[in-house]
Simulated assay, not measured.
Amino acid sequence: MDFNEYIGCLHIHINQETEKQILESIFYEAKQSGLDFIILTPHTPVKRRWDDYFSLEGYKDGLIVLTGEEADEGSGQNHILIYGNRLWLGKKPVEEIVSHQNNNLLMFAAHPDGQHNLFGFSVDHKWKKKNLFNSLTGIEVWSALFDFVEKTNPSNLIFRYFSFPHNLQGPSLVTLQKWDRILKKRRFVGVCGLDMHTLPFLIKLLDVRKIFSFRIVFKTLRNHILTQKKITGDFEKDRDVIVDAFMQGKVFFANDFIADSRGFFLGSSDKKKTMGDFLSIEEEILVEIPEKSYINIKIGSKIVYSGNVKRLVLKPDVFGACRVEAFYKEKAWIFSNPIFIQHPKN
Protein backbone atom coordinates (compact mmCIF):
# COMPACT_ATOMS: atom_id res chain seq x y z
CA MET A 1 0.00 0.00 0.00
CA ASP A 2 1.45 3.35 -1.00
CA PHE A 3 1.39 6.30 1.37
CA ASN A 4 1.24 9.88 0.16
CA GLU A 5 3.81 12.22 1.69
CA TYR A 6 3.15 15.91 2.36
CA ILE A 7 5.53 18.43 3.90
CA GLY A 8 4.78 21.33 6.19
CA CYS A 9 6.17 23.71 8.79
CA LEU A 10 4.54 24.78 12.01
CA HIS A 11 5.17 27.28 14.81
CA ILE A 12 5.22 30.33 12.56
CA HIS A 13 4.53 33.76 14.04
CA ILE A 14 2.76 36.74 12.58
CA ASN A 15 0.96 39.55 14.44
CA GLN A 16 -1.78 42.14 13.97
CA GLU A 17 0.70 44.55 12.40
CA THR A 18 1.94 42.08 9.78
CA GLU A 19 1.26 43.73 6.45
CA LYS A 20 -0.56 41.97 3.63
CA GLN A 21 2.53 42.04 1.39
CA ILE A 22 4.58 40.34 4.12
CA LEU A 23 1.92 37.64 4.50
CA GLU A 24 1.91 37.11 0.76
CA SER A 25 5.70 36.85 0.86
CA ILE A 26 5.52 34.22 3.61
CA PHE A 27 3.07 32.15 1.60
CA TYR A 28 5.15 32.54 -1.56
CA GLU A 29 8.41 31.53 0.15
CA ALA A 30 6.71 28.52 1.73
CA LYS A 31 5.50 27.28 -1.63
CA GLN A 32 8.86 27.99 -3.28
CA SER A 33 10.53 25.99 -0.50
CA GLY A 34 8.54 22.92 -1.46
CA LEU A 35 6.00 23.04 1.36
CA ASP A 36 2.47 21.73 0.98
CA PHE A 37 1.15 23.36 4.14
CA ILE A 38 2.03 25.67 7.00
CA ILE A 39 0.42 26.17 10.40
CA LEU A 40 0.52 29.77 11.64
CA THR A 41 0.73 30.09 15.43
CA PRO A 42 0.80 33.74 16.55
CA HIS A 43 0.83 34.47 20.25
CA THR A 44 -2.58 35.09 21.74
CA PRO A 45 -3.23 38.83 21.38
CA VAL A 46 -3.45 40.48 24.79
CA LYS A 47 -6.75 42.21 24.08
CA ARG A 48 -8.01 39.50 21.69
CA ARG A 49 -9.07 42.05 19.08
CA TRP A 50 -7.94 40.06 16.09
CA ASP A 51 -10.94 37.94 15.25
CA ASP A 52 -10.42 38.23 11.49
CA TYR A 53 -7.11 36.35 11.83
CA PHE A 54 -8.79 32.96 11.50
CA SER A 55 -10.22 33.99 8.12
CA LEU A 56 -6.67 33.79 6.70
CA GLU A 57 -7.11 30.03 6.52
CA GLY A 58 -7.40 28.42 3.13
CA TYR A 59 -5.48 27.76 -0.06
CA LYS A 60 -2.96 30.45 -1.04
CA ASP A 61 -1.62 29.77 -4.55
CA GLY A 62 -1.55 26.03 -3.94
CA LEU A 63 -0.29 26.26 -0.34
CA ILE A 64 -2.56 25.07 2.48
CA VAL A 65 -2.52 27.73 5.22
CA LEU A 66 -3.89 26.66 8.62
CA THR A 67 -4.47 29.22 11.37
CA GLY A 68 -3.51 28.10 14.87
CA GLU A 69 -2.29 29.79 18.01
CA GLU A 70 0.55 29.70 20.51
CA ALA A 71 -1.40 29.92 23.75
CA ASP A 72 -0.01 30.59 27.22
CA GLU A 73 -0.96 31.69 30.69
CA GLY A 74 0.45 35.16 30.22
CA SER A 75 3.94 33.97 31.19
CA GLY A 76 7.00 32.57 29.47
CA GLN A 77 6.28 28.98 30.51
CA ASN A 78 3.77 26.30 29.51
CA HIS A 79 3.18 27.43 25.91
CA ILE A 80 0.91 25.30 23.72
CA LEU A 81 0.74 25.14 19.94
CA ILE A 82 -2.95 24.74 19.11
CA TYR A 83 -4.81 24.10 15.88
CA GLY A 84 -8.54 23.68 15.34
CA ASN A 85 -9.86 26.54 17.45
CA ARG A 86 -11.77 29.46 15.95
CA LEU A 87 -11.56 31.64 19.05
CA TRP A 88 -8.45 32.67 20.97
CA LEU A 89 -7.78 30.31 23.88
CA GLY A 90 -4.69 31.78 25.55
CA LYS A 91 -4.04 34.26 28.37
CA LYS A 92 -5.79 32.06 30.91
CA PRO A 93 -4.67 29.20 33.20
CA VAL A 94 -3.20 26.39 31.14
CA GLU A 95 -5.50 23.93 32.92
CA GLU A 96 -8.42 25.78 31.37
CA ILE A 97 -6.75 25.87 27.96
CA VAL A 98 -6.18 22.11 27.80
CA SER A 99 -9.78 21.47 28.87
CA HIS A 100 -10.68 22.29 25.26
CA GLN A 101 -8.87 19.13 24.14
CA ASN A 102 -12.20 17.29 24.06
CA ASN A 103 -12.96 19.41 20.99
CA ASN A 104 -10.41 17.36 19.04
CA LEU A 105 -7.86 20.13 18.82
CA LEU A 106 -4.22 19.55 17.97
CA MET A 107 -2.23 20.58 21.04
CA PHE A 108 1.57 20.36 21.29
CA ALA A 109 3.75 21.40 24.22
CA ALA A 110 5.95 24.12 22.72
CA HIS A 111 9.72 24.19 23.43
CA PRO A 112 9.27 22.07 26.60
CA ASP A 113 12.89 22.52 27.69
CA GLY A 114 13.47 25.92 26.13
CA GLN A 115 15.92 28.27 27.79
CA HIS A 116 18.65 30.63 26.60
CA ASN A 117 21.18 33.32 27.50
CA LEU A 118 20.92 35.22 24.23
CA PHE A 119 20.81 38.61 25.97
CA GLY A 120 23.39 37.80 28.63
CA PHE A 121 20.93 36.59 31.24
CA SER A 122 18.92 33.41 31.62
CA VAL A 123 15.46 33.27 30.03
CA ASP A 124 13.27 30.28 30.85
CA HIS A 125 10.50 29.08 28.50
CA LYS A 126 10.20 25.52 29.84
CA TRP A 127 7.11 23.50 30.57
CA LYS A 128 6.55 23.39 34.33
CA LYS A 129 3.16 21.67 34.53
CA LYS A 130 4.20 18.31 33.12
CA ASN A 131 1.19 16.66 34.74
CA LEU A 132 -0.89 18.21 31.96
CA PHE A 133 0.99 16.40 29.18
CA ASN A 134 -1.72 13.72 29.28
CA SER A 135 -4.17 16.33 27.98
CA LEU A 136 -2.05 17.16 24.93
CA THR A 137 -1.67 15.59 21.49
CA GLY A 138 2.08 15.67 21.72
CA ILE A 139 5.27 17.66 22.03
CA GLU A 140 7.52 19.94 20.00
CA VAL A 141 10.59 17.72 20.15
CA TRP A 142 12.84 19.90 17.99
CA SER A 143 12.63 23.71 17.96
CA ALA A 144 14.73 25.57 15.40
CA LEU A 145 14.76 28.74 17.50
CA PHE A 146 15.83 27.09 20.74
CA ASP A 147 18.32 24.85 18.98
CA PHE A 148 20.01 28.06 17.80
CA VAL A 149 19.69 30.26 20.90
CA GLU A 150 20.47 27.58 23.50
CA LYS A 151 24.22 27.97 22.91
CA THR A 152 24.14 31.59 21.76
CA ASN A 153 25.15 34.52 23.96
CA PRO A 154 26.40 38.07 23.36
CA SER A 155 30.03 36.93 23.09
CA ASN A 156 29.46 34.41 20.26
CA LEU A 157 26.35 35.87 18.60
CA ILE A 158 28.11 37.02 15.42
CA PHE A 159 29.85 33.66 14.93
CA ARG A 160 26.63 31.78 15.62
CA TYR A 161 24.74 34.03 13.21
CA PHE A 162 27.07 33.36 10.29
CA SER A 163 27.00 29.61 11.05
CA PHE A 164 23.20 29.29 10.88
CA PRO A 165 21.52 27.01 9.85
CA HIS A 166 24.54 24.71 9.59
CA ASN A 167 24.90 24.83 13.39
CA LEU A 168 21.54 23.25 14.17
CA GLN A 169 22.41 20.37 16.50
CA GLY A 170 19.19 18.39 16.87
CA PRO A 171 16.66 17.83 19.65
CA SER A 172 17.95 18.06 23.20
CA LEU A 173 18.61 14.76 24.95
CA VAL A 174 16.38 15.87 27.81
CA THR A 175 13.41 16.38 25.48
CA LEU A 176 13.98 13.07 23.69
CA GLN A 177 14.10 11.22 27.03
CA LYS A 178 10.92 12.96 28.12
CA TRP A 179 9.22 11.92 24.89
CA ASP A 180 10.33 8.31 25.28
CA ARG A 181 9.04 8.14 28.88
CA ILE A 182 5.59 9.27 27.80
CA LEU A 183 5.58 6.93 24.80
CA LYS A 184 5.92 4.00 27.20
CA LYS A 185 2.43 4.86 28.45
CA ARG A 186 0.52 6.34 25.52
CA ARG A 187 0.62 7.78 22.03
CA PHE A 188 2.33 11.17 22.21
CA VAL A 189 3.06 12.73 18.85
CA GLY A 190 6.42 14.39 18.26
CA VAL A 191 6.80 17.30 15.86
CA CYS A 192 9.36 19.95 14.99
CA GLY A 193 8.69 23.67 14.98
CA LEU A 194 10.42 26.77 13.66
CA ASP A 195 9.30 29.39 16.20
CA MET A 196 9.96 31.81 13.36
CA HIS A 197 8.97 35.47 13.79
CA THR A 198 8.69 38.28 11.31
CA LEU A 199 11.74 40.43 12.00
CA PRO A 200 11.42 44.04 13.21
CA PHE A 201 12.71 46.59 10.70
CA LEU A 202 16.03 47.29 12.48
CA ILE A 203 16.87 43.61 12.99
CA LYS A 204 15.94 42.90 9.38
CA LEU A 205 18.53 45.49 8.32
CA LEU A 206 21.16 43.78 10.49
CA ASP A 207 20.33 40.40 8.92
CA VAL A 208 22.73 41.17 6.08
CA ARG A 209 22.85 37.62 4.73
CA LYS A 210 19.06 37.15 5.06
CA ILE A 211 19.81 34.04 7.10
CA PHE A 212 16.64 34.44 9.14
CA SER A 213 14.43 34.98 6.12
CA PHE A 214 11.53 32.61 5.59
CA ARG A 215 13.20 31.56 2.34
CA ILE A 216 16.02 29.95 4.36
CA VAL A 217 14.20 28.82 7.48
CA PHE A 218 11.42 27.03 5.58
CA LYS A 219 14.11 24.69 4.23
CA THR A 220 15.28 23.56 7.66
CA LEU A 221 13.01 21.78 10.18
CA ARG A 222 10.00 20.27 8.42
CA ASN A 223 7.26 17.81 9.28
CA HIS A 224 6.48 15.04 6.76
CA ILE A 225 3.10 13.38 7.08
CA LEU A 226 2.25 10.00 5.53
CA THR A 227 -1.36 9.36 4.62
CA GLN A 228 -3.34 6.95 2.49
CA LYS A 229 -5.54 9.85 1.37
CA LYS A 230 -4.55 12.34 -1.28
CA ILE A 231 -4.71 16.10 -1.11
CA THR A 232 -7.16 17.08 -3.83
CA GLY A 233 -7.60 20.85 -3.70
CA ASP A 234 -10.74 20.71 -1.57
CA PHE A 235 -9.61 22.75 1.43
CA GLU A 236 -11.86 21.27 4.12
CA LYS A 237 -11.06 17.70 3.12
CA ASP A 238 -7.36 18.44 2.74
CA ARG A 239 -7.26 20.15 6.13
CA ASP A 240 -8.76 17.03 7.70
CA VAL A 241 -6.15 14.83 5.98
CA ILE A 242 -3.37 16.87 7.59
CA VAL A 243 -4.98 17.03 11.04
CA ASP A 244 -5.76 13.30 11.06
CA ALA A 245 -2.16 12.44 10.16
CA PHE A 246 -0.85 14.52 13.07
CA MET A 247 -3.43 13.09 15.45
CA GLN A 248 -2.42 9.55 14.54
CA GLY A 249 1.31 10.24 14.69
CA LYS A 250 1.88 9.42 11.03
CA VAL A 251 4.67 11.94 10.81
CA PHE A 252 8.44 12.19 10.85
CA PHE A 253 10.39 15.42 11.14
CA ALA A 254 13.75 16.30 9.69
CA ASN A 255 16.33 18.99 9.06
CA ASP A 256 15.92 19.05 5.29
CA PHE A 257 18.66 21.65 4.97
CA ILE A 258 21.14 18.81 5.51
CA ALA A 259 19.60 16.49 2.91
CA ASP A 260 16.20 15.83 1.38
CA SER A 261 14.39 13.39 3.69
CA ARG A 262 11.49 12.65 1.36
CA GLY A 263 11.00 8.93 0.95
CA PHE A 264 11.85 7.96 4.52
CA PHE A 265 9.72 5.07 5.73
CA LEU A 266 9.19 3.22 8.98
CA GLY A 267 6.56 0.50 9.02
CA SER A 268 5.70 -3.06 8.23
CA SER A 269 7.72 -4.88 5.58
CA ASP A 270 4.65 -5.06 3.30
CA LYS A 271 4.23 -1.26 3.66
CA LYS A 272 0.63 -1.59 4.78
CA LYS A 273 1.38 -0.05 8.18
CA THR A 274 3.49 2.91 9.17
CA MET A 275 4.15 5.25 12.08
CA GLY A 276 1.23 5.50 14.48
CA ASP A 277 0.02 1.99 13.64
CA PHE A 278 0.29 -1.20 15.69
CA LEU A 279 2.49 -4.07 14.63
CA SER A 280 2.61 -7.60 16.01
CA ILE A 281 5.95 -8.67 17.42
CA GLU A 282 5.79 -11.50 14.89
CA GLU A 283 5.92 -9.01 12.00
CA GLU A 284 9.02 -7.49 10.45
CA ILE A 285 9.88 -3.78 10.56
CA LEU A 286 11.05 -2.02 7.42
CA VAL A 287 13.20 1.12 7.56
CA GLU A 288 14.06 2.97 4.35
CA ILE A 289 16.30 6.06 4.32
CA PRO A 290 16.73 8.35 1.27
CA GLU A 291 20.49 8.49 1.86
CA LYS A 292 22.72 5.97 3.59
CA SER A 293 23.07 7.21 7.15
CA TYR A 294 23.75 6.11 10.69
CA ILE A 295 20.52 5.15 12.43
CA ASN A 296 19.37 4.22 15.89
CA ILE A 297 16.22 2.14 16.24
CA LYS A 298 14.75 2.58 19.69
CA ILE A 299 12.01 0.58 21.37
CA GLY A 300 11.13 2.31 24.59
CA SER A 301 14.41 3.88 25.65
CA LYS A 302 16.44 0.87 24.51
CA ILE A 303 18.49 0.97 21.31
CA VAL A 304 17.80 -2.32 19.51
CA TYR A 305 19.83 -1.53 16.40
CA SER A 306 22.55 0.91 15.33
CA GLY A 307 24.41 1.05 12.04
CA ASN A 308 24.97 2.68 8.65
CA VAL A 309 22.16 1.62 6.35
CA LYS A 310 19.87 2.78 3.59
CA ARG A 311 17.38 -0.07 3.95
CA LEU A 312 16.85 -2.45 6.84
CA VAL A 313 14.41 -5.23 7.67
CA LEU A 314 14.34 -6.11 11.35
CA LYS A 315 12.27 -8.46 13.47
CA PRO A 316 11.91 -6.94 16.95
CA ASP A 317 12.12 -9.05 20.08
CA VAL A 318 10.69 -6.52 22.56
CA PHE A 319 7.39 -4.70 22.89
CA GLY A 320 6.87 -0.95 22.89
CA ALA A 321 7.05 2.26 20.87
CA CYS A 322 9.59 1.80 18.07
CA ARG A 323 11.04 4.93 16.51
CA VAL A 324 14.04 5.81 14.33
CA GLU A 325 16.73 8.48 14.59
CA ALA A 326 18.93 9.07 11.53
CA PHE A 327 22.21 10.99 11.39
CA TYR A 328 23.61 12.11 8.04
CA LYS A 329 27.30 13.00 7.91
CA GLU A 330 27.27 12.95 11.73
CA LYS A 331 24.47 15.53 11.95
CA ALA A 332 20.99 14.99 13.38
CA TRP A 333 18.69 14.52 10.39
CA ILE A 334 15.48 12.47 10.70
CA PHE A 335 13.36 11.60 13.74
CA SER A 336 10.31 9.42 13.29
CA ASN A 337 7.23 8.96 15.36
CA PRO A 338 6.87 5.39 16.57
CA ILE A 339 5.15 2.34 15.28
CA PHE A 340 3.86 0.34 18.24
CA ILE A 341 5.07 -3.25 18.70
CA GLN A 342 2.55 -5.33 20.61
CA HIS A 343 1.89 -8.90 21.63
CA PRO A 344 -0.24 -10.74 19.01
CA LYS A 345 -2.97 -11.36 21.60
CA ASN A 346 -3.31 -7.64 22.46
Rank of each mutant, 00 (worst) to 15 (best):
R222A: 08
E283H: 08
K302N: 13
Y305R: 10
D256L: 02
S261I: 02
T227W: 07
V217G: 02
R239G: 06
D238Q: 00
L279R: 06
V243I: 14
E291D: 10
Y294R: 15
K272Q: 13
V251A: 06
K237R: 15
K298W: 12
Q248H: 12
K302T: 14
S268A: 08
G263F: 03
V217A: 13
H224N: 05
M275S: 03
F246H: 01
K229H: 12
G267L: 03
F252R: 03
E288G: 09
G233F: 06
S301Y: 08
E236F: 13
Q228E: 14
S306P: 02
L221Y: 14
V243C: 06
V251E: 09
F265V: 10
D244Q: 14
F235M: 02
Y294L: 15
I289F: 05
N296E: 15
L266M: 08
I216T: 15
V243W: 01
T274W: 04
K292M: 11
E284R: 13
N296T: 11
Q248C: 12
S293C: 07
F235L: 03
A254P: 00
F264S: 04
S261M: 04
F278S: 15
S293K: 09
K271Q: 14
D260Y: 02
I299K: 05
F246C: 00
E284L: 11
D260H: 07
K219M: 09
A254C: 04
L226E: 01
I225G: 01
V287W: 03
I289R: 12
I285G: 09
G233N: 10
S261G: 10
K237L: 11
P290I: 00
T220E: 10
I216G: 08
K292D: 11
I258G: 07
S293H: 05
R262W: 10
S293T: 06
K219C: 05
Y305C: 08
E291A: 12
I299L: 04
D244M: 11
G307C: 04
I225P: 02
L226S: 07
I297H: 10
E236G: 10
F252M: 03
A245F: 03
P290W: 00
D277C: 00
K229T: 09
F246V: 01
S268P: 00
K292H: 10
E236D: 14
Y305G: 10
K298M: 13
F252A: 04
K230E: 15
I242G: 06
I242L: 12
T232G: 00
K229R: 14
Y294W: 13
G276Y: 00
G233P: 01
D277R: 04
R215S: 15
K292N: 11
H224G: 02
K271L: 11
I303R: 13
P290V: 00
S268F: 01
